[in-house]
Amino acid sequence: MCNLTLCVLLFLAASSSSSCPVHCVCETTIVNCVNQGLRSIPQPLPKDITTLNINGNDIRNLNNESFPSPLEHLTSLYVSGSQVEQLNTMVFANLPSLRFLDLSNNIIVHFSAEAFSQDNKVEVLNLSRSLYNYSYVGVFANLFKQSLPKVSHLDLSNNKLVLLPEGTFTGLLDLTVLDLRNNSLVSIMNGTFQNRALEELDLRDNALKDLPNGTLADLCLIPDLRVRLAGNPWRCDCNIEDMLIWLKRYDLVVDKLKITCSAPAGLKHVSLLQLKQYQLPCTYTGDLKGVLETSYVFLGMVLALIGVIFLLVLYLNRKGIKRWIYNIRDACRDHMEGYHYRYEINSDPRLANLSLNSDV
């Protein structure tokens, strides 16, 4: 009897150990496969797994074969720094309990808007340093609009984003934390931030020179919002006057004391809050001479183009123009001959009498 019990225990232990994938370390329900040079998701994964960490591998393509069987208890998935390029349709469909997804430090080129099931529960999504090229942000915009209704924390920092497509975050109704630090955003479109649940908005270290009035109004309508704006190259001229009033009136910006001017030169490094409205210049500081020279060159090019087109039209219609000139010449000749004939009649009395007799 004792031998039978021992055999059963050994069998269970062997079964338990065999459920842990090769090159991975399993601790209770946590599976770690970090920096193992893996090219795909290790298989088979334990059925009771709750956390999978496959950071630092070479898994370029995630598809519906990456998780071939349902993992009902998996809540956290780490795939950071794994050279991920493609995330295909329904790749996460067999992870119904997934709530935390880290895809940072990858080179994502394609992210299917149908990568998640419609009833997914993802709450935290880290896409920091994950975009291969900022032009692909439109793919993420479609993903945010259609597929992630439960996301509350979204990290898009360090992606060199220049512009955010209109309505990028409108589908994220539960969004509370949005990190857009260290991008290259040059402007914020009106209506970009209308998420009433938003609590943290980080816009530090971008390329913003001012914020449009529509954006200022949108931010005022979010009740518990805290915004960070330091580290941008703010241009302290009359275009930023409304933003200055907004900063002084509301306490939404937690780092407003750190907001400094980058231009014009006379106000560089000056705290924006220290300025009065009348101190904001409205003078043109560009190279006016260069602009005028460029304008003259452009005008000359336009006139030259018009001249070429005119000559081309003349050339293409040369036969018609020639015929038109001949017609005018003949008409003028006939007219002049009529005048000449009348002149000869009037100057010769005999012809004049003959003309009168012929009239009778």
Rank of each mutant, 00 (worst) to 15 (best):
H340A: 08
F169S: 06
G81D: 07
Y278Q: 09
L244I: 10
L156T: 02
E72A: 14
I54C: 13
N239L: 02
H73K: 15
G167A: 08
L87D: 01
N159S: 09
L288T: 11
D174G: 04
P70Y: 12
V360A: 05
E344R: 15
G290D: 08
N190S: 15
L38F: 03
N120E: 02
D287P: 11
Y296F: 11
G290W: 02
R323H: 15
I222W: 03
I240S: 09
K121G: 03
L163N: 07
A115N: 01
L312A: 12
D237M: 00
T215W: 12
Q279K: 07
A93M: 11
D210C: 05
V91I: 04
D210F: 04
L203V: 07
F144A: 02
L12D: 05
L201A: 05
A113T: 07
S152H: 04
R129N: 14
P212N: 15
L178D: 03
F169C: 11
T283Q: 12
F116R: 03
D179V: 10
H340F: 12
R342T: 09
L143K: 02
C2V: 14
V34D: 11
S104Y: 07
L125M: 08
P233L: 01
R60N: 11
P212D: 09
L143E: 00
M301E: 06
N346M: 15
P281D: 07
N190Q: 13
N213V: 12
R196G: 06
D102P: 06
I54L: 14
S152E: 05
F140N: 00
Y78M: 08
N213S: 05
D210H: 07
F67Q: 04
L131G: 03
E85K: 12
D210M: 00
L175D: 01
S271Q: 04
S19L: 11
C26S: 10
E337C: 03
K145A: 15
